[in-house]
Design a protein around this nucleic acid. Structure first.
Length: 618
RNA sequence: GCCACGGUAGCUCAGCAGGUAGAGCGCGUGCUUGGUAAGCACGAGGUCGCGGGUUCAAAUCCCGCCCGUGGCUCCA
């Protein structure tokens, strides 16, 4: 926004003719004496926040020149980057309203050709221009609100008692203590790179891509397989839960009146794409696309709850440079995003409860148990008071204490949310699953349903990410594996996610043919098996398979050929000192793995099944 | 984004009072046909992150930038 301030003896204007942007106006014009005239150009990207900063400037100048009368005069010629007319009028009206508390404000109509006369006083303060940058401001209104909101911290015990956080006995809850420390005192102890960063590289899962922006990763064949399987799994679970899968654009008009409000909270966090005529921002979640779709749908109470799902590949958030780490925090990430339109708060609570259970279930099947994460519930005080029993009933689901953050008032779109927070090897917490009850966006987007009495009503909307970002799930699995290795176990991924599930190791060349035959049979049974046909010693091949976290290592030599059995090393039952080796038939091995991966998605080996034909990816 | 530290072979790192680069692993070739966490030998492989400056001479000193990690901040 650009403004030009002229302290004047008088200002006089006369309305001549409409432009195509003209706002309705009846009068002819007016003359105002002893006035501060403010010429205003509203620019692209300006928001109410920009406008209120302009108001502060104007107020400041008006007080200095001791003028209690102001003319707000829309004037396009101060800028070459003008906002659309609707925004401009809205912001001018907003400024008029803000200023009229203290001043006699005259707003000249927008979008008309006007003649004016002005007599500028000419003292040193009488002519000032100001540029108020919309994009660069750090603090938007919502952020200011957040600063003013006070948080109260409690622990909700499994016995449904609400205890102030200082009075809770954490002695049996080490992980929860770490999480609470992280949340409240913001204690940071880490002095090294998180373990998953080294692991994601060494296991050829993912790596930094210097040719892209920070926080955009490359995924090697192994990583793509793991990511793909997780994506398939979460998607299946959400569809099974009753969601309609959709796909929506990844970029949206920056000036779109509905989207802008949502954007205001994070002005510096968007990727901006220059279009031919309009500028676009890259989505940071699937909300927009789904809400716009919902707004157009004809819905009645009979259709509710209505669930819509999308896997965002990608969501973009231009996080601050120093916040990015490995797979924990990215600028481009994949997130399952489900929105549920519900009739009323009763239905919202019911869904919230069910989606909480869905999230527990999804994480558990992925390989993250309730003891691997800590629960946080964030809630407004009012909502808590009105729904005490409901909130307490949530504590029953996992029977573990929950951190409650209570706000004295609502400053964002939701009244209630939960998160499951993974606490990693460096005691840092990151949110995985989350569900929120949104009481604001239905109205903003014009999402309505027809109720049983024939009247249109605004529904509530739940936001649900059943697993959290897929990349973050991989991070959690790697950190968990690292933590388990500190407890003397061998680190590994769940079998259904392991890129190679069975490694066949022929002892000498004469066993190779049989090894290939076995691998083929396994692969026909949808088990990812490969063959280490390299010219290496058996010990070396076993070591390589072990350091690649392969769950089943099957050695085949003369003895196995003779007995028609495999000599299988089972990783999850082994330690580095004590390898668990079992003789079993091929059929038994197939049965064991099939049982272990039952109900999970499958994809074939991500690379050639002969190790000698496989490149090292880094 | 701010502060600190780091970037040298494909990988992990050594070298740095300024004098044109080293190890281990990996890779290639040969020997070896092996029995459960690293066989042996030989060989190839380097714009020392990028750009500028100081100097007879810069991987090494100075400045700027890029990337990474930690802290601050932040996480819709």
């Amino acid at each position: 926004m650009k403004i030009l301030l002229l302290h004047s003896d008088y200002m006089e204007y006369e309305v001549k003719k409409k432009t195509r942007f003209a706002e309705p106006f009846e009068g002819k014009g007016e003359r105002v004496e002893e006035v501060l005239v403010v010429f205003v150009s509203v620019e692209k990207g300006d928001t109410e926040e920009t406008a209120s900063r302009a108001v502060d400037e104007i107020r400041d100048v008006a007080e200095k020149v001791k003028s209690d009368r102001i003319v707000l005069y829309p004037y396009a010629h101060l800028s070459s980057e003008l906002a659309d007319a609707e925004t401009a009028v809205n912001l001018l009206k907003f400024m008029e309203k803000e200023l009229s508390n203290e001043f006699d404000v005259h707003r000249s109509p927008f979008g008309w050709y006007k003649a004016f006369k002005i007599s500028c006083k000419g003292h040193p303060l009488s002519e000032l221009s100001r540029e108020i940058k919309g994009e660069d401001i750090e603090l938007t209104q919502a952020l200011k609100d957040e600063e003013r909101a006070v948080s109260y911290w409690y622990i909700l015990t499994p016995e449904k008692e609400l205890v102030e956080v200082d009075r809770f006995d954490f002695s049996r809850y080490d992980n929860l203590r770490k999480f609470v420390d992280y949340e409240i005192s913001k204690r940071r102890a880490a002095d090294r790179t998180p373990p998953h960063v080294e692991l994601m590289k060494r296991l050829e899962i993912a790596d930094y891509e210097e040719a892209s922006d920070s926080g955009h990763m490359r995924y090697y064949p192994n990583g793509r397989l793991i990511k793909s399987l997780l994506e398939m799994f979460v998607t299946e679970k959400c569809i099974e839960y009753g969601a309609m899968e959709v796909e929506t654009p990844i970029m949206y008009d920056r000036g779109h009146p509905t989207l802008r409000k949502y954007l205001e909270r994070f002005p510096a966090r968007q990727y901006i794409i220059k279009g031919d005529k309009r500028d676009f921002f890259l989505r940071f979640a699937a909300c927009f696309g789904q809400f716009l779709m919902n707004a157009q749908a004809t819905m009645t109470y009979k259709h509710l709850p209505l669930r819509m799902y999308e896997l965002t590949r990608y969501s973009f958030r231009k996080e601050q440079r120093g916040e990015l780490v490995g797979l924990r925090r990215l600028r481009a990430f994949t997130m399952p995003d489900m929105h549920t339109v519900v009739r009323d708060m009763e239905e919202a609570k019911q869904e919230f409860y069910n989606q909480y259970r869905l999230s527990v279930d999804v994480l558990r099947e992925i390989g993250l148990e309730p003891e691997d994460y800590e629960v946080a519930i964030r809630i407004t005080k009012d909502f808590y008071k009105e729904n005490r029993d409901f909130i307490h009933s949530i504590a029953e689901i996992l029977k573990k204490p929950i951190l409650i953050e209570m706000w004295d008032r609502r400053f964002f779109y939701f009244v209630l949310k939960f998160e499951f927070n993974f606490v990693d090897a460096l005691d840092k917490a990151s949110a995985l699953s989350t569900v929120q009850i949104d009481v604001e966006n239905a109205e903003r987007y014009g999402i309505r349903y027809v109720d049983s009495d024939g009247k249109e009503r605004y529904p509530y909307i739940l936001h649900c990410s059943a697993s959290g970002a897929i990349e973050r799930v991989i991070y959690a699995l790697l950190e968990k594996a690292f933590l388990s290795s500190k407890n003397g176990m061998l680190p590994m991924l769940p079998v259904w996610l392991s890129p190679t599930q069975v490694r066949i190791i022929p002892i000498a060349e004469r066993h190779l043919e049989k090894a290939i035959e076995i691998a083929n049979e396994l692969n026909r049974n949808r088990i990812r098996a490969d063959v280490d046909d390299r010219d290496e010693t058996t010990a070396k091949k076993v070591r390589d398979a072990s350091t690649s976290w392969i769950p089943y290592i099957a050695v085949i030599g003369d003895r196995e050929m003779e007995e028609n059995l495999l000599s299988v090393t089972v990783r999850k039952e082994s330690t580095i000192k004590n390898q668990k080796k079992i003789k079993m038939s091929l059929k038994e091995l197939i049965d064991v793995i099939k049982k272990e991966t039952e109900g999970k998605p499958y994809k074939p080996l991500p690379m050639h099944f002969m190790l000698s034909r496989r490149p090292s990816m880094r």
